[in-house]
Amino acid sequence: MATGGRRGAAAAPLLVAVAALLLGAAGHLYPGEVCPGMDIRNNLTRLHELENCSVIEGHLQILLMFKTRPEDFRDLSFPKLIMITDYLLLFRVYGLESLKDLFPNLTVIRGSRLFFNYALVIFEMVHLKELGLYNLMNITRGSVRIEKNNELCYLATIDWSRILDSVEDNYIVLNKDDNEECGDICPGTAKGKTNCPATVINGQFVERCWTHSHCQKVCPTICKSHGCTAEGLCCHSECLGNCSQPDDPTKCVACRNFYLDGRCVETCPPPYYHFQDWRCVNFSFCQDLHHKCKNSRRQGCHQYVIHNNKCIPECPSGYTMNSSNLLCTPCLGPCPKVCHLLEGEKTIDSVTSAQELRGCTVINGSLIINIRGGNNLAAELEANLGLIEEISGYLKIRRSYALVSLSFFRKLRLIRGETLEIGNYSFYALDNQNLRQLWDWSKHNLTITQGKLFFHYNPKLCLSEIHKMEEVSGTKGRQERNDIALKTNGDQASCENELLKFSYIRTSFDKI
């Protein structure tokens, strides 16, 4: 039985969820670079991206490699990797027998973001014989899940209580170790020597080791999670996991709180800001991140802002960003909400898709409305799209047979046209069989910064309504002859009103 693990408890099935942008060198404390989270699957090609990484700022997932063999891993080693800020997950990587050479110096898994409450997941690794993470000293947050690894031993010899604050939620089941077939031998045991430290858990006094050649490092209890030197002297209180010299914040392997210019500090002093819960960055760093993602459509890219001495992905609820200094300031009234469309555009074809934009005031991208039916549609669209004030790209209304009016965009005031449909149009209306009105132009103002209007096959939309939009939106004169079809717009509506004058002759039985 794995020490510190839980057996036999019912657990939810383990679901495996399925960018080499360097964020800056980590400095003297770390020998390499800070790398983003990685999802490495199918083959070993991307694994080489770990070569210079000291910190993975995010998670590391290595999974679904069915053609790899043990010899493929023999020359692979990433000794610079010290810390993973989120979680480490391995799933069905064939041929991998140990992690001792792959990650010989991995010391800390912070667990800032977890995989279903777990910071370390080893699942269905069919050839893994031992973990071998002999320098792993601290899992700051989260638990361990090690399950269905039929060859995995050296679990009962690990004292997880020396690595985690609590072992109650560890789930370590259905491994070879369960069948008591392992016969784990710690260093020196074969020669009758006791080389590794022994600890007591559940009444068992057991030597602690990761492999037959690597003991588990056990520091004096007084050192807590700070770690200790090879001689057993406690590291500085700002260290986490390990250090090369005692009581020196510049000799830590990793930091308990924050890293700044080669030393570990309790908090980031001005003019620095907390970033990702582990390091200090200056304003320029946060500003660069903001600008890199301002026009990016890459998933996970955030326009970072500053709030409460932190550089964070977005302002919290009730705050909006001051564009001059990136500071989050309290909103006066309802907060603006910028919604970034991942692929640059979004099609609204149902109430469900409209709900995804609920509360958005600025759309960074283009909207395509293609709704053919739905219950209580006008009210639903207004509830979900009615706060949109600005669209950076274009607005396209296409084959939306259920629409009679666009009044559900009740606050839309600006279409920038930074991206144009077919390279020309910022407003595009095609084949809307029941569209009769755009907006009530006596109450609604709309500016279209650039781009043209396109109207074709809107049989109940009168040309007068379209011409009014040209005047109000500032697009009059931009359109070419064929942009607004004269014969297919309003051709099934009563669009022309003329005053009919009647004269009559009164007659009676005795007068003409």
Rank of each mutant, 00 (worst) to 15 (best):
C153V: 00
A198H: 09
R256E: 10
F283R: 12
T250L: 09
G300E: 04
F275G: 01
A198D: 14
S296A: 13
C335F: 04
L128W: 00
C311L: 15
P31F: 11
N42F: 00
R41M: 04
N309P: 01
C311Q: 01
C186F: 02
P313R: 09
C223M: 02
P197A: 06
C228G: 00
T68F: 01
K224W: 04
C243E: 00
T320S: 10
L102I: 05
P197V: 09
Y273I: 06
L44T: 08
T107I: 14
N179G: 12
V144N: 01
T229N: 09
T199Q: 10
C335N: 03
K224E: 10
L99W: 02
K251C: 07
F66G: 00
N242I: 09
P249I: 05
C264P: 00
P271C: 08
S143R: 05
N43Y: 09
T211Q: 04
P220D: 05
V34I: 04
R162G: 07
D178I: 06
G32V: 10
L152I: 06
L89H: 00
T189N: 08
N325K: 07
D86P: 00
L233E: 12
D248Y: 00
M65F: 02
C228N: 04
G333K: 04
N295V: 05
T157G: 05
G333I: 14
G333F: 15
E130Q: 11
G241V: 02
D169G: 13
I185H: 06
G227S: 07
N117S: 12
V144Y: 00
E57L: 04
I312M: 02
C209Q: 00
F205W: 08
G262P: 05
L326W: 06
L155Q: 04
C223R: 00
I185L: 12
L327T: 10
D165V: 09
I201T: 06
I222F: 02
V121W: 01
L136S: 03
R298I: 07
N105P: 00
T68M: 06
G111R: 00
L260Q: 03
T189E: 03
N170E: 01
L76K: 15
G227D: 02
T140F: 04
R110E: 05
M65P: 01
W210K: 01
G318P: 01
R208F: 15
N42K: 00
I84T: 00
L102S: 00
R110Q: 14
M38Y: 09
G58F: 00
I139N: 00
T250W: 10
N149F: 00
S213V: 07
F116T: 01
C182I: 01
R145D: 04
H307N: 13
L332Y: 04
I158F: 04
H274L: 06
E49I: 10
Y30T: 06
V265C: 03
P104I: 01
A156S: 11
V144T: 06
W210M: 06
Y134K: 00
D165F: 11
P79E: 09
H307Q: 07
P316F: 04
F115C: 01
R46L: 08
T320K: 05
R113L: 03
H127K: 02
D39G: 02
Y87C: 00
M321L: 03
D169Y: 05
G183N: 05
Y118H: 07
M65C: 03
N175F: 06
Y87L: 00
L90K: 01
N117V: 01
I62S: 00
N105Y: 08
R297P: 08
W278M: 00
H48T: 12
R69A: 04
C315L: 04
P220L: 09
I222Q: 10
Q276D: 14
L152M: 06
K67T: 02
D277H: 14
V144I: 15
V144G: 03
D248M: 04
L260A: 13
F116H: 00
S213I: 08
G95L: 01
Y87N: 01
M83F: 05
P270L: 10
R297N: 09
D288A: 13
L326Y: 11
G132V: 01
C209H: 03
E147D: 03
K100T: 09
L174C: 12
Q216I: 03
R46M: 03
M38R: 13
F78Y: 08
G333V: 14
A119E: 00
E130S: 11
A156I: 10
G32A: 05
C280T: 00
F283D: 14
L106Q: 00
N308T: 08
G262I: 03
C315S: 02
S237N: 12
Y272P: 08
D165Q: 11
I172S: 10
E147P: 00
E33M: 15
C239M: 00
E180V: 10
F258W: 04
V55M: 01
Q245P: 02
D165R: 12
N135P: 02
K224I: 09
V144K: 00
G241M: 00
Y94G: 03
I158Y: 01
G132P: 01
V167H: 12
T320I: 10
D86K: 03
N52L: 08
P104A: 03
Y273D: 00
H302S: 08
S284L: 06
V218I: 14
R110K: 07
K129P: 00
N308F: 11
L240K: 11
D39L: 00
A156Y: 15
N52V: 15
L240I: 09
D86Q: 13
N242H: 11
E181N: 14
D247S: 05
L155A: 02
T250Y: 08
V34L: 06
L155Y: 01
C252L: 00
P336T: 04
N242C: 06
D261A: 10
I158W: 02
S317L: 03
L133Y: 01
G58W: 06
K67A: 06
S317P: 05
H226N: 09
G203Q: 10
D86R: 06
L289R: 14
E238G: 05
C182L: 04
G188Y: 09
H28K: 12
E238D: 04
R141P: 00
Y273T: 10
T157N: 11
K100S: 14
D178N: 09
K310V: 10
Y319S: 15
N149K: 01
P270D: 11
L50A: 05
C255A: 02
D72F: 07
G58S: 00
D177W: 12
W160M: 04
R92T: 00
I146N: 04
G300M: 07
R297C: 15
N179H: 09
V173R: 14
F115S: 01
L63Q: 12
N242L: 11
K80I: 08
K251M: 13
W160S: 01
S237K: 07
E168L: 14
P36V: 03
H214S: 04
C223K: 01
V265D: 04
S244M: 14
E314Q: 04
K148S: 02
R46P: 02
G232Q: 05
G203I: 01
R162E: 06
N295D: 06
F123N: 00
S323K: 05
M65R: 00
F258E: 04
Q216M: 08
R279L: 08
I158T: 05
T140W: 05
R263A: 10
H302N: 11
C53P: 00
N150M: 13
D165N: 08
H214D: 04
S112P: 00
C234K: 02
N42S: 03
C153F: 00
V253Q: 02
C243V: 00
K193S: 06
G232S: 11
F103P: 00
A198L: 12
L326P: 08
A198V: 07
E314H: 03
H28W: 11
K217N: 14
I201S: 06
T140D: 07
N195I: 14
C228T: 00
T107V: 08
S244H: 08
C53F: 00
T45W: 14
D288L: 14
G262W: 05
P336K: 07
I158C: 04
D177R: 10
C315F: 00
W160Y: 09
D86G: 09
Q303V: 04
H214P: 03
G227R: 02
W278Q: 05
T85W: 00
E180Y: 07
L76T: 01
T157M: 01
A254V: 06
L44Y: 07
C293F: 05
D159N: 05
N175Q: 10
M137E: 02
Y304T: 12
V144F: 05
P197R: 09
T140S: 07
A119Y: 00
R298H: 02
P336G: 05
E147Q: 07
P270E: 10
H226Y: 11
T194C: 07
N242M: 08
C286W: 01
G95K: 05
D169W: 13
K191I: 15
G232F: 04
P246I: 14
C335K: 01
R256C: 04
A198S: 06
K224Y: 11
T199Y: 08
G132F: 01
I82F: 06
Q287R: 13
V93P: 00
Y94V: 04
M125R: 00
I163Q: 02
C252V: 00
